[in-house]
Design a protein around this nucleic acid. Structure first.
Length: 773
DNA sequence: GAGTTTGAAACT
DNA sequence: CAGTTTCAAACTC
């Protein structure tokens, strides 16, 4: 009895002494006295009799208690229920706990807090002692303290740290991490470093720092894992009550944590993250983003921060037309910075990849915005489903399928580059992403294909050769506007939604960040006139061309120019033709005459067209068409031969080779009722390859325009497109014939091609979609 | 590199 | 909405 009381009293004193001083001592003495009295009380005696633990010396206590504590622990780890309880406790503590143990954390702590914390701890211990429950109870509380530590630390930093605001960001994250130590392993060491701490806990439970520490460490380690693995709730709760931004990031973080869980070796990290999440969740505003971003990866936080800063510093060439995009952009930036940070750091490739993916996913899920059409650049082209993690093998080649159109291989060796590519790809698929592209590579146009190609060409200079080679440079917009001030769609840059850059030879250019307002205003104006003005011009259906036309095979991936061309003389065999330029075949939307598009002629050409056309148009087209087109075709054919094959696309050259006779008929005059638009349902399979290899598949012109998958088109856009298309179609002579009903598709989006679409739809492209049927 | 051709965009 | 003009890219030489 005596010993025990003494011990406890000493410990209490010690604790208090550590923090406070004289006043506490007197208090302690008083406490001791009171305890002595209490000792004599019948209740105490009774309790003692009940308690399996006998008042023994500290050494004994240690021995006895450890086992007990362990006994309790296992249950905790194994039982979800228990864990949940623990979680609740964790949370509760979090709420109730005072900012505590500053002494352990760092200099930031305040004395008062420390005292308070110690006092609490002492009290707690006393209570435990009084309860006479030296076994599980004792262990539990102490254990709770551990978690409490974590939480408190976090909280402390959040609330108590004088610098909290100022230090938001890298420093802070860094420090927090370090101080908290929050990895399980770190946490334990912390205790070691502060014997007092150990005493505190020990008092009620396990007295010494000897021997126990190991167990503790182990225990804590497990605990940390528990917290992370079994307490998703905790993380979630963290994000609550936070500003949206913070929540958002936290959420992402959670995801990331999950990912980490999968691959991470160090469980401790999770604990840290948990705390981190909490901390971050409480931070308001912009800081959150920064902090979160910085802390996306504990191990990389520092780097991330740097990266972040770096990235923020980067100039964004893309036009930001929508706020929604802005945020997303932010995220992407983060992702990029993270990834870039990872690149150098290497070892984390795997995790990095994962993170990258997560980020993207997070973006998509949380901010899938389909704002204005204007952002066509990327936004329209992306779909969550498109973000697939094909393979996250860090060791060999992590393969990420990011974005609708591209599959990128991340070879460790390739490392940075690969990652970058991925990022770029992602960017490509995302609306705001152009910013990324720009940042990394100047101003590559949205077209996924082009982007990929460009990107692959490590040298930025390569992009510029647009003038040199028609085929390639296109991806990067470089205008040469003289009179439009680059504020009209004439300007490729502007049309692409990017700012003009150095390589541009434009005169009097207003399409620069400096004139952002002007640009935005102009853009708005244009959009008001034509909502689809900035929308992707090419819609890529994922399914194989459903078009039945003879030349159907020609059209790769059933992609179509949204509006269709209006070529009269080029035979759709030159870049004058937008369809051709976009690497897609002409469709019913086209009003072209004498279409010879190597990628696919107008649909209608087939049946009806042929008949009528034969009659009407043989004359005109023959001569002219053949002359020019032939060259083009030949060229195309060659190109196709070389590069094609990537897709299942039928042999290039379809057009001429396919049916010369048909050509004539093509003349624009009549279009078959069928619509050439790709079916909505589409397996991205065909699509992806195409994208990935860009021009490879069909050849010549790398798509000049950004493309979007039809199924990805937002409703409003579809409607728009449909109407607009329809409008155009109806407007054109050809169209009139067809005049597809907007809603012909039935439930389908209004805009898409009617009749054909209907048919296509009936054929389930996606399993997921069909289930209903 | 200059000039021509072409078709989209813009305008009336 | 049709016709015309403007524009800049694509193309040719």
């Amino acid at each position: 009895m005596e010993d025990r009381l003494d011990i406890s009293a000493k410990e209490s004193n010690r604790e208090v002494l550590e923090v406070m001083d004289t006043p506490e001592r007197s208090k302690n003495s008083q406490i001791s006295a009171s305890l002595a009295k209490f000792e004599d009380s019948p209740v105490f005696t009774f309790l003692n009799s009940l308690s399996p633990i006998k008042p023994v010396k500290s050494t004994h206590i240690t021995q006895t208690i450890n086992p007990l504590s362990f006994a309790s622990i296992p249950s905790v780890f194994t039982s979800p229920h228990v864990s949940s309880i623990r979680e609740s406790r964790f949370l509760r503590r979090h709420q109730l706990s005072d900012p505590s143990k500053p002494e352990f954390s760092s200099d930031d702590g305040t004395k008062l807090d420390a005292n308070k914390a110690n006092a609490d701890a002492t009290d707690q211990m006393d209570e435990q002692k009084e309860n006479g429950d030296g076994g599980d109870m004792a262990a539990e509380p102490s254990f709770g303290d551990c978690s409490k530590f974590v939480v408190d630390f976090a909280k402390e930093y959040e609330c108590a740290s004088p610098n909290s605001n100022l230090r938001k960001g890298c420093d802070r994250e860094d420090k927090d991490m370090a101080d908290y130590g929050c990895t399980s392993s770190a946490l334990v060491p912390l205790m070691h470093e502060h014997p007092q701490r150990g005493e505190v806990n020990i008092d009620g439970v396990n007295q010494t720092t000897e021997g126990a520490p190991c167990d503790w460490e182990h225990m804590l380690s497990d605990t940390s894992e528990l917290l992370i693995f079994e307490s998703p709730d905790v993380r979630v709760s963290f994000s609550k009550s936070v500003d949206p931004g913070a929540s958002f990031y936290t959420g992402i973080k959670s995801d990331m944590q999950n990912l980490h869980l999968i691959s991470a070796v160090d469980s401790g990290e999770h604990v840290v993250e948990g705390n981190e999440a909490e901390v971050m969740s409480t931070q308001p505003g912009e800081g959150d983003e920064v902090d979160n971003a910085a802390s996306l990866n504990n191990s990389d936080e520092q780097v991330d921060c740097e990266q972040l800063g770096f990235y923020h510093g980067m100039r964004r060439r893309c036009l930001v037309f929508e706020m929604g995009g802005a945020r997303r952009k932010h995220l992407e930036e983060n992702s990029i910075s993270d990834s870039s940070a990872w690149i150098p750091s290497d070892g984390n490739m795997a995790s990095n990849d994962q993170k990258l993916v997560l980020l993207n996913r997070g973006n998509e899920s949380s901010r899938r915005l389909m704002p204005g059409i204007g952002l066509h650049l990327n936004a329209l082209a992306t779909t969550p489903k498109d973000y697939n993690i094909v393979n996250l093998d860090s060791s060999s080649s992590a393969r990420l399928l990011i974005g609708p159109s591209s599959v990128v291989n991340l070879h460790p060796s390739n490392g940075g580059q690969g990652l970058l590519d991925n990022i770029l790809v992602v960017a490509t698929s995302d609306r705001d992403v152009d910013g990324l592209e720009m940042a990394v590579e100047d101003a590559c146009p949205p077209s996924a294909t082009a982007a990929n190609e460009e990107i692959n060409q490590s040298s930025p200079k390569k992009k510029r050769r647009r003038a040199e080679q028609s085929g390639e440079g296109e991806s990067c917009k470089r205008c040469n506007c003289k009179r439009s001030k680059c504020l009209k769609l004439y300007c490729e840059c502007f049309a692409a939604g990017v700012y003009c850059v150095e390589p541009c030879a434009c005169i009097d250019c207003f399409n620069k960040p400096i004139h952002e307002e002007t640009v935005l205003a102009t853009r708005k104006q244009i959009e008001s006139r034509n909502p689809l003005a900035f929308a992707p011009k090419v819609i890529r259906g994922s399914d194989p061309p459903l078009e039945i036309g003879d030349d159907s095979s020609k059209t790769p991936a059933s992609a179509r120019h949204k509006r269709g061309c209006n070529c009269k003389k080029s035979g759709c065999l030159k870049k004058y033709c937008e369809c051709y330029q976009g690497g897609v075949g002409c469709s019913i939307n086209c009003r072209c005459e004498g279409c010879k598009n190597a990628f696919g002629r107008k649909d209608g050409m087939e049946a009806e067209a042929e008949q009528e056309e034969e009659e009407e148009e043989e004359e005109e087209t023959d001569a002219s068409e053949k002359s020019v087109p032939d060259k083009s075709l030949q060229k195309i054919a060659m190109e196709n031969d070389v590069e094609q094959n990537m897709e299942s696309v039928p042999p290039a050259t379809p057009l001429r080779g396919g049916r010369p006779s048909a050509q004539l008929p093509f003349s624009s005059k009549k279009k078959p009722p069928r619509s050439s638009l790709p079916s909505i349902g589409s397996s991205s399979s065909s699509f992806i390859p195409r994208q990935r290899f860009g021009k490879s598949s069909f050849l010549p012109p790398p798509p000049k325009f950004e493309t979007i998958r039809e199924d990805e088109i937002p409703y409003f856009l579809q409607g728009e497109g449909g109407s607009s298309d329809g409008g155009v179609q109806t407007a054109s002579p050809n169209r009139k014939r067809v005049s597809p009903p907007h809603n012909a598709g039935g439930g389908m989006s209004p805009g898409l091609r009617s009749s054909r679409k209907l048919i296509l739809e009936s054929i389930p492209s996606f399993p997921s979609l069909t289930p209903n049927q």
